[in-house]
Amino acid sequence: MFYIHQASCISPQHTFAPVNLESLLTPVNNQLRVIEPDVIPLPGNVLRRMGRGVRMSVIAGMPLLKEQSSPQGIIIGTANAGMQESGKFLDQIIEYDEDTLSPANFVQSTSNSVAAQISMMFGLHCYANTHVHGGLAFENALLDAAMLVSEQPEGTFLLGGADEITNYNYSIDQLAGWYKAEQIDPGDFYAPTPGTIAGEGAALFNISGKADGAKARLVAAEMLNTADETKVAERLAAFLQKHLSGKQPSLLLSGENGDIRSLKCYNTCEGVLVENVPVARFKHLCGEYPTASAFALWLAVALASGEVTAPAHLMKRGELSAAPDSILVYNSYKNYQHSFMLMEKA
């Protein structure tokens, strides 16, 4: 599909300059919120107008744009980008009776605000597209990016996934029973009880069709919508047969999230692999959110390139003694939207 040359991530852990995954940060009120850098190289008046989701995405993208200042496209996946600013704008409509409204809140509330802000701040006049498909938003952005790379293999593109916790989306999902009722510490994240922990983050990637200087190669990605775990397992087996010719990946990076209602699906997919394939989990690092698979891809790149050594708390089964040659990422969102991504060393 394409090569990944650089990856950058703002998350609830120390994933942004420098990376340190050994120590885990504790959820506050069952929420894992991002760690923003102490020093942000942006003017104060610009930062004040940015919502949190836009701000963390722009910050994550800045190191990549320094490496590649003029990409041929910006492709972002999100489900909730700008929702906090949208709430502020709706509150203003009521408070000011639709008069003297702040245009900044409206502009920042649109789903495409992340790609738009990056384009404007860096003076880019290129393809900019945002995919809003719930738990498959990042995967749809990824497929869009793959098509662009196939058309322009010499070009470079900025791919990303980002979502934020807002009072609105947290309250809705909490009332729907998606979050745990009891307070959870990092060590108890995978306790088999109903619900999970809310998370957020932004992960961005410089990608192209060129192998020179790449850290990893995304081989394939697939998506499906179903509540039947046997169909997911069948699709996974066909996916591995097609892209690995029946061989096994070096590592399964699982999106298991501690919700007992989704555990059967993850365990069924683990059963597709032979028992000696190590299994790692990542959502105790970032929490659950629609584009958590972007965080998983960032982590896969870091592991495959040797930039990060898998700490013990990542491993559910087996261990990693060296950087894995191939990583299968399986993620499920709300037990219905599923995706597979297969990545290899460059």
Rank of each mutant, 00 (worst) to 15 (best):
Q6S: 15
S11R: 08
S11V: 08
T15R: 04
T15A: 09
P18K: 08
N20K: 03
L21R: 00
V54M: 03
M56Y: 11
M56A: 10
V58D: 06
M62H: 11
M62F: 14
L65C: 13
S70H: 14
I75F: 10
G77H: 08
G77Q: 09
G82C: 11
G82P: 05
Q84F: 15
S86H: 11
F89N: 02
D91L: 06
I93Q: 04
D97C: 10
N112S: 02
N112G: 00
A116F: 05
Q117K: 12
I118Q: 11
G123A: 07
H125M: 12
T130W: 01
T130F: 01
H131P: 03
V132E: 02
L142S: 03
A145S: 15
M147I: 13
G155Q: 07
L158C: 04
I165M: 01
Y179T: 06
I184M: 13
D185E: 14
Y190V: 05
G195W: 10
E200P: 03
L204I: 09
N206P: 09
S208V: 15
K215T: 04
M223C: 14
L224P: 00
D228A: 08
V232C: 00
R235A: 15
Q241P: 04
H243V: 13
P249F: 10
S250K: 04
L251S: 05
R261S: 08
F295N: 08
A296H: 03
L297Y: 09
A300W: 06
G306W: 10
N331C: 10
S332T: 10
